[in-house]
């Protein structure tokens, strides 16, 4: 079973601990482990000064739960190299809008990672909304399945809409003139 992730269309090793606040734990008090970690928004907000250098180097990234407002990070986007957005269930679509806002409205240029229930059948939508890193739950796929899943990123090659990935809608992106008939 694989604990690899997909980054920019390739399957890669990427060991990184996701820190979660257990019930009753306070963001200000928990120990943030050394090494590569993702910390919850609340921890980042409480410990920003302490974590700043590690964030700049990319060692520390911040993850947002579905429904947390990305505007909370608007002032940190020059510092942060990595932001992760959580999908508590793959049918919870809030993080698609969050990703779109982070990229389009706030201009985030760093790594944007989908975490949580991240499944191959959503890879196309996720990458179009600006995720460049896809982290399925450890063990969900075998290495071979994850390699095969790369194909799903390209399920739709010329989508209708403008999105983060395709800044123009199809009618502005391609010539859809009358000479483009379908022969039946």
């Amino acid at each position: 079973m694989s604990d690899k992730i997909i980054k920019n269309g390739c399957v890669v090793e990427d060991e990184r601990l996701t820190v979660k606040l257990a019930e009753g734990e306070a963001a200000a008090d928990i120990a943030v482990p050394a090494g590569r970690v993702l910390v919850p928004l609340a921890v980042w907000q409480a410990r920003r000064d302490e974590l700043l250098a590690r964030a700049r180097s990319g060692e520390v990234g911040v993850w947002l739960a579905a429904g947390e407002d990305v505007a909370a990070l608007a002032g940190d986007l020059e510092v942060l190299q990595l932001i992760a957005l959580h999908f508590p269930k793959f049918t919870d679509g809030r993080s698609y809008s969050a990703a779109t806002l982070l990229r389009k409205r706030h201009g985030f240029k760093g790594e944007l990672r989908a975490i949580g229930e991240v499944l191959r059948d959503q890879f196309n939508y996720m990458t179009r909304c600006g995720f460049d890193a896809l982290q399925p739950q450890a063990g969900r796929y075998t290495d071979a399945q994850l390699e095969a899943a790369l194909a799903s990123i390209g399920d739709f090659t010329q989508p209708y809409q403008a999105s983060v990935k395709d800044p123009l809608p199809l009618f502005r992106r391609m010539d859809r003139g009358a000479d483009r008939e379908v022969q039946q």
Partner: peptide, 13 residues
Amino acid sequence: RQWSTFHPEFAFL
């Protein structure tokens, strides 16, 4: 119809 077909942001409302 075209705009709403496979809109990547609004597939899991």
